[in-house]
Amino acid sequence: MDWLKIFRAEKKSSAQTAKERLLITVAHQRQGEGNGLHFLPRLREELLAVVRKYVQVPDEAVQFNVQRDEGLEVLELNITLPEKERRGGVASH
């Protein structure tokens, strides 16, 4: 068995992981804004304003979650309705 090869392969894999992580991070950084989603605070404000035309919700009612992978970015949006208003017309998700 070639032990050296095993050790080398192991080393390479950690560096490879590092490189893959960096490629994604740096690509986002180069879009000019730190995470490429600099519009999120404004989007959230506007969404809150729209939701509030129909239901009174607290500031935390609108939540975002972002997952990134190579070439794929998922923005998950949750709007939590207050208990009493739940029968009202706005659906969550």
Partner: peptide
């Protein structure tokens, strides 16, 4: 957690996001 950063410390300070978010 670099792929999961949506909001940062300054967003919270400036009221653009809650701490929880």
């Amino acid at each position: 957690v670099e792929r999961r950063v949506v909001y940062d410390f300054v967003n919270v300070i400036q009221g653009e996001a809650t701490l929880k978010q």
